[in-house]
Design a protein around this nucleic acid. Structure first.
Lengths: 200, 200
DNA sequence: GTCTATACACGGATAGAC
DNA sequence: GTCTATCCGTGTATAGAC
């Protein structure tokens, strides 16, 4: 094996893990499979990472970071709250369909984090990031459209995540994109009911 | 080990698997742990089940059946569509909080079914059952309140599952029951907007 | 500092004795 | 029909070559 810096190895291995999970599923993503994909030896793996859990944690971090980039500027203001919500959710959906593997991986990571004490906290961190993003998005839409929300923004953010998460999970099961888009549009319309014109 | 009929062994092992997964998590539910819990030997396991996957499939079936029983009569008619939806969702939530382990197990099973080719079809079957139940529930509420739905009932059923699923997943992560109930109540109110008084 | 080789414990699965 | 002994793959660890 070529001598590669530990930093590069880490990147290679994380990228390889992402590809293997996306292509063959979480179950097939053994340490040895990841090493083969990355062109590294087993010992090289354990030289860079203390354990497989450490790689999974790093994978989660990087995937969430990539997600943040993919969804940067994802808030779309259209004057009308309903239209803004619809556009924003449609943009969200575009990022899902552009890279379904990422959603698969994130969903699988959440599940494993919930069941595996060694990954405790990873799921919570993931959802904290989701909720923060949702709160910001709703804030921007409210401000941009000159309306206020009639429910606490934390509650609306949770509902927003419930919707995106639920739609994504259903789609991962049946891959019915048309149904997913229709559901998102309907939810956008309904969310607009929680906005009231700002009194000045 | 006592000589037990294969049928009884199967039941013992499935029950033991459910207890272990609920108590120690999916990761700890090794075949050996399940056998110990059931008071059976490893070979007895493989005499009853061809593989661990087969037990998981059976566990899914039985858990879904138990779910159907727990949620039988879960539709609550209150005259008002919004109130009916709220009561029905609150009843759903009661079944979740009464037996959180079951939701954990079902969620974990869905995820494994999505990633493991050996369990292909299990997730789809699960969601088909969810959607059927949701359709029936919405139908009953519409009929009972003398209203019709302004969107196709299949779409509303999907949205219903999105909400219950999303709320449940969020709760499994942060265990915030108050937030879950608040979200469900708000969604019930939203859903009522898709009902129109029946013209005769 | 990086890789080779090897070892160990534990997981699922199975052949074959009783 | 049930159990013992064993196999192979996986995660993890480490001693030592370069």
């Amino acid at each position: 094996m070529a001598r590669v810096s530990a930093d590069d190895r880490r990147r290679q291995l994380v990228a390889a893990a992402f590809r293997v999970i996306g292509r063959d599923g979480f179950a097939k993503a053994t340490t040895r499979a990841i090493c083969t994909e990355a062109g590294a030896s087993l010992a090289a793996f354990h030289y860079c990472f203390a354990s497989k859990q450490e790689l999974l944690t790093e994978l989660t971090d990087q995937t969430l970071a990539a997600l943040a980039v993919a969804r940067a500027g994802g808030t779309h203001i259209r004057g009308d709250v309903a239209a803004s919500l619809r556009e924003t959710l449609r943009f969200y959906w575009k990022t899902v369909e552009d890279d379904p593997g990422r959603e698969s991986v994130l969903m699988a990571l959440t599940q494993h984090a919930l069941n595996d004490p060694a990954l405790a906290g990873v799921a919570q961190q993931q959802y904290a990031a989701y909720h923060r993003t949702a709160r910001e998005t709703l804030q921007e839409i409210g401000d941009g459209c000159g309306t206020r929300w009639t429910l606490p923004i934390e509650q609306l953010a949770r509902m927003f995540i419930v919707v995106t998460d639920g739609v994504t999970l259903a789609w991962l099961v049946d891959r019915d994109g048309a149904a997913a888009r229709a559901a998102l549009d309907a939810f956008a319309e309904q969310f607009a009911a929680f906005a009231a014109r700002e009194e000045s």
